[in-house]
Design a binder for these strands. Structure first.
Length: 608
RNA sequence: CGGGACGUAGCUCAGCUUGGUAGAGCGCGCGCUUUGGGAGCGUGAGGUCGCAGGUUCAAAUCCUGUCGUCCCGACCA
């Protein structure tokens, strides 16, 4: 049966909703696909639900095709599994917590690693049972500080999450590659352009990881791209390390007066005035900025450390947080924040504004930063600080800087650490040229989790030698509701939505115009024939609505093909509008069925 | 969590400065006309003015608080 506009639960809106900013939000609301019901929560209306279900089914088919088995967990979960992995705490304000009548703690699941792990633990205990891939399509909850942009960032959303359980890393690699290919196919079939970018494992605690981003100005993620095809999230770019420099001939470091130069900009200005360079002028990139930071450990203890970066670059706190537990040798996921005046005041040797790795005094070079130095403060450097590189940096004396301080000769460090964000124009790791930055929406993310969750929840199986081994896991997600928004964002024009055939709420929108019964009878008959041929029809059978209203609604709703049954009928023709090709043609009634069916099939196949 | 803007009918908005019985357009009902690009005329239904306090004879309007929305930033698989 075709969907009939006369009875469809739908009210299109003439004006953009006042609270909408991005195109997908405006159009999905105006065309009657979704309706806001709560802060960060949307109701799926009949048309929207059809699109959402189609997206889900494509995902489901491709997951099944790689051997995935669908299960379904509750969204309301007890806290214990999440406590076992530390995420009850780690998620902070990011999850919804609640209590039942007896006071027991629950949460609305933001993701289900723990539950999948426990499920496999319940059932399996031998390597012979592995590999196994399980997935679900589930509502997830996150207490977003700022829901925005309609379905793009919400507090309740639908996600496909799958998990692979394998006996070893080889198995994980295979599972990862299969998911990767499945994801490429899924987005092809959806008609959504995505690029796979290298990602940081982040809170998930894994190793290899890629994000599938839909390039879009409305996206919230930034990634970089090289001419040679290297792509990575800005957080995950490996800094290109410069060649080390032979410093045997380098002049000795020299302390100079640099009054009132506690910022890099001021330092460069003062240096050019008071200590001019032989050739050219000093640049910020030649200075070494020693930034004092604090890691707030899980116990609340504040651990001071210093990171040195080229003066023209900013420290990226988020990046640091990924590397700092290793660098400091601490457990948990400490937060990194700028050191406070109190933090710094505890170290009498630190001269704020003039901090540097070395104090030159009476011909001696005294290390001031590093665990084995005067201060004992851990000291890390950006990868650009290579052996032999020469810097202008703080002299650890008020109003003085040291010039020509050479790395490895005049100072050392505890570890090299990725501490700065990548910039447009930075060299690409693949050596193919400068990196360019672009924006994208995160549509999917695949991770090699490794053994973190299996270890925390004690998921072990017996291997072929009868020995207990920890299972290796991978985790793979696709945002279903976000994909609907991204599709709307990617496929629309000034008149309305234009869905790809595979996700459209219907394949053909039949518009009957006029008032004669013959027209509606012919339209009805044609709709029935199309449906019999397996084509989904949205039929505008409204008798009173004017043609203009029907055309506008059809364009707004965005079914890709419109078939107009109206004034052409007298001479035996129908009018076919193709919203993707932006064409219209009159076709003879006799050929129309075959023609339309063929066109629908063509679009379905061209999208996968 | 910081900075800014805004909450009045299903939707888009006016009214608030200067307190005095709640408004328009679209949408919805009914009637007539119109009928291939959001048509016209007539006639209706529909609102605790986000919520809670306060000031006042009287509050959509003034004050305080609170909740929510949007934008920028922070945060965020």
């Amino acid at each position: 049966m075709p969907l009939r506009m006369s009875s469809l639960f739908l009210r299109t809106l003439r004006d953009d909703p006042a609270d909408a900013e991005v195109a997908s939000h405006k159009l999905l609301v105006r065309a009657g696909y979704i309706r806001r019901a709560a802060p960060g929560g949307y109701t799926w209306l009949p048309l929207g639900l059809r699109v959402k279900n189609k997206v889900e089914n494509i995902v489901r088919e491709e997951m099944n095709a790689i051997g995935g088995q669908e299960v379904h967990f509750p969204a309301l979960l007890p806290k214990e599994p999440y406590e076992a992995t530390g995420r009850w705490e780690d998620y902070g304000d990011g999850i919804f917590r609640l209590q039942d009548r007896s006071g027991s703690d629950f949460l609305l699941a933001p993701t289900h690693e723990e539950l999948f792990t426990l499920l496999v633990k319940d059932h399996y205990s031998s390597y012979k049972d592995l590999p196994v891939y399980l997935y679900q399509i589930q509502t997830k909850y996150r207490d977003e500080a700022r829901p925005r942009a309609g379905l793009l960032r919400v507090r309740e959303f639908i996600m496909k999450d799958s998990y692979s359980f394998t006996i070893d890393q080889d198995g994980l690699n295979e599972a990862y590659d299969k998911h990767r290919l499945a994801y490429v196919r899924i987005f092809e079939r959806l008609g959504l352009e995505v690029v796979a970018v290298q990602a940081m494992a982040g809170a998930m605690g894994g190793s290899r990881s890629e994000e599938f981003l839909h390039p879009s100005a409305a996206g919230e993620d930034t990634f970089v791209e090289s001419p040679g095809g290297y792509r990575a999230n800005v957080e995950a770019v490996d800094t290109v390390v410069p060649e080390t420099i032979d410093y045997t001939e380098a002049p000795a470091a020299e302390v100079k007066d640099t009054p009132v130069s506690t910022t890099i900009a001021a330092l460069v200005e003062v240096a050019n005035e008071l200590a001019p360079k032989d050739n050219g002028s000093w640049e910020a990139s030649e200075t070494l900025k020693c930034v004092v930071l604090t890691a707030v450990l899980d116990g609340g203890e504040r651990q001071l450390f210093v990171v040195a970066v080229p003066g023209d670059r900013e420290v990226d706190v988020k990046r640091l947080e990924a590397f700092i537990p290793d660098a400091l040798g601490v457990a948990g996921e400490p937060e990194v924040e700028p050191a406070t005046h109190d933090d710094i005041a505890k170290h009498a040797n630190l001269v704020p504004g003039y901090i540097g790795p070395t104090l030159l005094q009476d011909g001696n070079a005294i290390p001031m930063l590093g665990t084995k130095s005067q201060t004992g403060i851990p000291f890390f450097v950006d990868p650009r600080i290579v052996s032999g590189s020469s810097w202008v940096t703080g002299a650890n004396q008020d109003q003085k800087h040291v010039f020509g301080l050479v790395a490895d000769r005049d100072f050392t460090w505890d570890a090299v650490i990725e501490a700065t964000a990548v910039r447009d124009g930075d060299p690409a790791p693949d050596g193919s040229g400068p990196l360019a930055t672009r924006r994208g929406m995160e549509m999917g993310h695949i991770f090699q989790l490794g053994r973190k969750y299996a270890e925390a929840l004690d998921l072990k199986v017996l291997d072929e030698h009868g020995k207990q081994v920890v299972v290796t896991m991978g985790s793979y997600g696709i945002g279903i509701s976000r994909a609907v928004a991204a599709l709307a964002e990617a496929h629309h024009d000034d008149k309305g939505l234009i869905w790809p055939m595979n996700v459209a709420p219907a394949h053909v929108h039949i518009v009957a115009t006029g008032k004669d019964d013959e027209i509606f009878e012919a339209a009805e008959e044609f709709a029935t024939k199309l449906e019999a041929a397996g084509v989904e029809v949205l039929y505008d059978d409204r008798r009173k609505a004017q043609a203009g209203v029907k055309f506008s609604d059809a364009e707004l709703i965005g079914v890709p093909l419109h078939l107009i049954v109206g004034r052409g009928l007298a001479k035996g023709t129908l009018e076919l509008k193709d919203r993707h090709a932006d064409t219209r043609e009159d076709i003879p009634l006799d050929d129309a069925l075959d023609h339309v069916v063929a066109l629908v099939r063509k679009y379905q196949n061209s999208q996968g």
